[in-house]
Each structure stands twice: as structure tokens, then as C-alpha cells.
């Protein structure tokens, strides 16, 4: 089952023939993802990585029946690419692009919401359902198949979590990298909700960072929903100073609720197994599930 992507997902790549798009499309194909084609305006009719290239997402959808898109388009054109995918009827849009202006995302987000599709990202590593589909830039081999869902704002920290989960003798159902920008398509709460409702997910790792209120919102929802599955949580940035942007555009402490300490406190109050050290994610999950790591 899993969520968002699986072996039946028909994936197109927007920005297919660019260097990033080409490299990662190749990696996804090698992983076994069902990549049915790509879009690069002006290069329609050609073939790339043995797959058809289309001028528009609409054309790609008509010809391939694609339902999922991954976007590698440069930041200046990425919001446009997201809206094009939504307009063409793509159901799951995964935007990898980093550096999209906030004003552009402010317009794109309500646009896609009206069209009933899901946007993951931008500025994210993508989504992987191990053994079925990798729609992202993560190293596939790190993610062993299993029943732990992962939701994370950060790329390499997601890989770290997946690796620790594997070392604890467990595996991943679906890992969702929601992205580190101030405006993202899917919030922590929405991603957690998907995994809570997924019959093939037994427990969830939730990784956040300083800035915004997404983790607090998710924690309160988890409690209100009856803490149905164990959740292990970590917030990066306990040592980050206020007012300084820590790499991700969204990782900046603005007010008292943005700090790691405040978020961890709210998570604890709502029944989440909060770890202080990122090295403890796997072991804590094993303990929460009563498994010997």
C-alpha cells in the first residue's frame, strides 16, 4: 500500500533533459521507478534516457497517463512548472528545486489546492516507497523496506533516520521529505496524517527543525487523533541562534515558538517520543515498538 508513490505510479520528470533532471531520472529508472517520460519545453518529440520528451505536461499526461511528476526546473521557473503540472491533472507533484522566491510559492500553493492535487516540497529530497518507487534524489539503498513511515524537513537527516531504522532491524514504508522552505505544499501534519491512515505503516519518525509551527501543529493533531501509532520525534537546531538563517530558507528562529526547545516540549506534551540526540532515532523507535535492536 504505502502512501503517495508506489510501483504503479506513472512518473514524469519536468526539467528532464537538464543536468540535474537527467542524472536523477537515470538514478530513479535504475531503482525501478516507473518513469514514463519527461517534459522540456521546446524539446518535445525527442527521446531521452529511452523515454519520450514532451513540450508540455498536458501532452505528457495525454500520451503516457502520468499521474506523478518530479520537478527539477530552475528556481525562476519552478512555480510555473508546479502550476502547469496541477493544471494538467497530475495528482502528486514533487518539487525538488531549491531557491524558489517566496512570492511565487504564495501564488502556486492556492492554485494547486483548488485543483485537488498534492504538492511535496519544494526544496525537498522527494518521496520513496522502498522496493517500489523512488521519486526523489535520495540514495535508494539506504531505505530498507518495512513498516516505519518517515516525515522530514531535511534531506540528509532523512537518510540518517532511514539508516538508523535499518540498523535497528526495521524498515521504511514510505519516507516523505516535505522540504525546508517557508511555504511548502504539504505540512508535517498532513504528511503524518497520511502515514497514520496507512495500514502498512506501524510507527512514524517525525523530523523537524527550527522555524514555523508545523511540528507543533502535527503534535497536537497526533494527540487529538488518539496517538494511534508510536511517533519518534527530533528537532534540529537546539543550538541555533535566533535571527540567523541556518541554510534552509525556513530554518530561522523568529519568535519564542520557533525554537527547538519549544517544539520539543509541545511534542513531548502530546505523547511523542522526543530524542535529544539525532543518534538516538533508531534505538528509540525500536524501544517504542518493543523490538530488540
Amino acid at each position: 500500500m504505502s502512501v503517495l508513490v508506489n510501483k504503479n505510479s506513472k512518473v514524469i520528470v519536468q526539467g528532464f533533459t537538464g543536468s540535474e533532471g537527467s542524472f536523477h531520472a537515470q538514478q530513479m529508472i535504475e531503482y525501478g521507478t516507473n518513469v514514463v517520460g519527461g517534459v522540456t519545453p521546446g524539446k518535445g518529440g525527442s527521446t531521452h534516457l529511452e523515454r519520450p520528451v514532451f513540450n508540455s505536461v498536458e501532452e505528457a499526461v495525454q500520451n503516457t497517463g502520468a499521474d506523478t511528476s518530479i520537478i527539477f526546473v530552475p528556481p525562476a521557473f519552478a512555480a510555473d512548472a508546479i502550476m502547469e503540472a496541477a493544471d494538467a491533472g497530475i495528482k502528486v507533484i514533487i518539487a525538488i528545486t531549491e531557491g524558489i522566491p517566496v512570492a511565487d510559492m504564495m501564488k502556486a500553493k492556492p492554485y494547486i489546492k483548488e485543483r485537488g492535487c498534492v504538492l511535496i516540497g519544494p526544496n525537498c529530497p522527494g518521496v520513496i516507497t522502498p522496493g517500489e518507487a523512488k521519486v526523489g534524489i535520495m540514495p535508494g539503498f539506504v531505505f530498507k523496506s518495512g513498516r516505519i513511515g518517515i516525515v522530514s524537513k531535511s534531506g540528509t537527516l532523512t537518510y540518517e533516520a532511514a539508516d538508523q531504522v535499518a540498523k535497528a532491524g526495521l524498515g521504511v514504508s514510505t519516507a516523505i521529505g516535505i522540504g525546508g522552505d517557508p511555504i511548502i505544499g504539504t505540512s508535517t501534519k498532513q504528511a503524518v496524517e497520511m502515514l497514520m491512515n496507512d495500514p502498512e505503516t506501524d510507527a512514524i519518525v517525525m523530523i523537524g527543525e527550527i522555524g514555523g509551527n508545523y511540528e507543533a501543529e502535527a503534535a497536537k493533531w497526533i494527540r487529538a487523533n488518539g496517538n494511534k501509532k508510536p511517533v519518534v520525534g527530533f528537532i534540529a537546531g537546539q543550538t541555533a541562534p535566533p535571527g540567523r538563517r541556518m541554510g534552509h530558507a525556513g530554518a530561522i528562529i523568529g519568535g519564542a515558538d520557533d525554537t527547538a526547545a519549544a517544539k520539543m516540549r509541545i511534542m513531548r506534551e502530546n505523547g511523542i517520543h522526543v530524542v535529544e540526540s539525532p543518534a538516538e532515532i533508531g534505538a528509540t523507535m525500536a524501544k517504542a515498538l518493543g523490538v530488540n535492536a
Binding site: 537527516l157 537546531g237 537546539q238 543550538t239 541556518m246 541554510g247 534552509h248
Partner: peptide
């Protein structure tokens, strides 16, 4: 570190190890 989230997590771990 490679990656912003892991970089912040690494900073946190340094603190937990007795450093700053």
C-alpha cells in the same frame, strides 16, 4: 556537514557531547 538539517543536528550533538 552535507545538508542543512544534518548540519544543525550535528551542532546539537556537539553540545550533547560537552562541546559548543
Amino acid at each position: 556537514v552535507n545538508g542543512a538539517g544534518l548540519a544543525m543536528a550535528t551542532m546539537d550533538m556537539i553540545k550533547l557531547s560537552g562541546g559548543e
